[in-house]
Amino acid sequence: MRSIVDFASEDVSLDRAAILRSQGVPDEAELSENFEKIYIKATELFRELAESKGIIAGITTSRFEEVFRGEGLNEKRNPVEEIYRNSSYLALFAVTLGPVLSSRVTELFNAGDYAPGYMLDSVSSYAADKLAYLAAEHLEAELAGGEAPAVSCRVLSYSPGYCGWHISGQKKLFEALYPEEIGITLNESCLMTPIKSVSGVLIAGPGEIHEFVNSYPFCNTCAARSCIERMRSL
C-alpha cells in the first residue's frame, strides 16, 4: 500500500489552548487585545496558505528493521523497537504543510512583523504535528477497510529524533519512502524542507503495545514529552 493524501486545511483542527500552551501561555491566562488579534490573524493565514499533503507506504517488519537501524546510532534501549516488534502493520509516512507557510513566516520576520511571524510559526508547528495524527487516522481507517476502526487496532506515529530513534534514521527512511514525491527533501544534517514537515513510522496494533514507562535515560532531556498525552489518547 502506498498512497498520497491531500488534507484539506479545515481537516486540521487548531486547538487554541494547545497552541498557546506551546508558547508557555497557561490556560487561565488573561491575554492582551493585541495578542488575540495576532492569534486570529495567524489562524486565518494558516487556513489560506497551508498546502497539506502526506505520503503513506506500508512496509514489512524485516524491511523496517533495516530502516530503523539507520546509521546505527539509536539508543540501545528504546520504546519504538519494542512497540514495532509487537505491531500488526507498519507504514512509513511523511506529511507537510508545504513551502508557502514557511516562506510567509520568514517574510513576516524580515518585514519586522515579529509577533505575527512568531504566531504563524507556532500555529504551523502545531498543525504539522496534527497532520501526523491525521495520517495515523487515515491509516487506521484504511486498515479497517472503510468501516469504523477496530477498537483493538490503534495507530500512532513515531519519528526519528524522538524516543531513542536517532535523527540520522531520516536518511534510510527517506530512501525507503521517497517523500520527495510530495516535495519534502532532506539535507545533510537530516533536516526536512519544508521545515513544517513530519516523517516517521505509523505503527498499528492493539492499544496496549503503545504503552511504555517513560523512564528511559533520554526521557529526562526530552522537550516534547508528548508520549504521556498520546498514551492517554489510546
Binding site: L20, L31, I38, Y114, A115
Partner: peptide
Amino acid sequence: NHEIFLPDVLLAAR
C-alpha cells in the same frame, strides 16, 4: 512574571 507573553514582547521589540 507571566503577566504578558512572547507576542506582546515582540510587539514591544518592534
